[in-house]
């Protein structure tokens, strides 16, 4: 087979596969702008109409508090990221640079914690939150995720390559260990922070399991839970266009934003699999962890 033919064949295969990858999204977009009859006709290409689009989106927004879901999603995701970074950055620094007693034990505990998915401690956490009266609250949504072993690994890996001289200089200049983390390490680790933030945001925005467990009030629902509720409610029954409109509304911002910053996201996601060669020791430990669960 000639080089040219082979290239054409490869492109054909990839184009077909790519089409399947984006198909649900494309179709969702088309259906959200198409009239009901067009959708039910079974046509491959749906003719969009401005009127139908308006009708579908208006219906979705009026029957489901989509904006409220989105706001909840942003609040929860941002709160989780802030807590995760605030807890993981000092710990990553201590594990990378401070020779304290019990460091191996702490490290082992974090490896252990990293392996445990949310479904395992969910029952006792649920009972605890129920007794504390925190079901149906932001706290209940955020709390289980504030500790991220993955973040600690990532930061530890980044901080290990930070020059010791600069840390010594900072100590002589009167920095406390915490201000070293806040004023020097975190700004220097900005790429790692960004990569992790993006990764964490996607994981928590899309999570269905935990919101389903702790949330029952519609005004506290996160986007996936809200959409699932909208789908299950009688309101969307038969109104496929409106359901698709709701799906587009909660998915599109994320897809647009994260497709444009793919590189950062992939760096965060692939960090445990393809470690930076500069820091072999922590990288190898990171690769021994099952990683990207959102914790």
């Amino acid at each position: 087979m000639s080089e040219r033919l082979r290239s054409i064949a490869a492109n054909a295969v990839l184009a077909g596969a790519s089409l399947i990858m984006v198909l649900p999204f494309l179709w969702m977009a088309m259906a959200s702008m198409a009239p009901q009859g067009e959708i039910f006709s079974g046509a491959i290409f749906l003719k969009p109409s401005l009127q139908a689009a308006w009708g579908n989106y208006a219906f979705a927004f009026s029957r489901a508090p989509l904006l409220r879901y989105m706001a909840n999603g942003v609040i929860v995701c941002v709160a989780i990221i802030v807590c995760q970074v605030a807890i993981a950055a000092p710990a990553g620094y201590a594990l990378a640079k401070l020779p304290f007693r019990g460091r191996p034990v702490v490290f082992a505990a974090i490896v252990l914690g990293l392996m445990i998915p949310i479904q395992v401690p969910a029952i006792p956490l649920y009972i605890g939150l129920a007794y504390a009266g925190l079901l149906d609250t932001y706290t209940g949504l955020v709390l289980p995720f504030i500790i991220s072993g993955f973040a600690i690994f990532l930061f530890r890996q980044f901080f290990t390559s930070f020059p010791d001289d600069v840390i010594d200089a900072a100590r002589l200049d009167g920095f406390s260990e915490l201000s070293i983390v806040r004023r020097l390490m975190l700004p220097a680790a900005w790429p790692a922070v960004a990569a992790f933030a993006v990764f964490s945001f996607v994981a928590n925005w899309n999570d269905l399991y935990w919101p389903l467990v702790v949330i029952t009030r519609p005004e506290m629902m996160t986007p996936p839970l809200g959409l699932a509720a909208f789908r299950a409610s009688g309101d969307s029954a038969g109104n496929v266009g409106a359901l698709m409109a709701g799906g587009i509304v909660i998915t599109l911002p994320l897809v647009i934003v994260f497709s444009t910053i793919q590189k950062q996201f992939i760096r965060g996601m692939a960090a445990p699999a393809a470690p930076a060669p500069a820091a072999p020791a922590p990288a190898s430990q990171a690769s021994a962890s099952p990683a990207p669960s959102s914790r």
Binding site: M21, V22, L208, P224, F258, F265
Partner: peptide
Amino acid sequence: AFFLPVTATLVA
């Protein structure tokens, strides 16, 4: 194209 399902909300 292949990145899309990674970020898109699975529920949607």
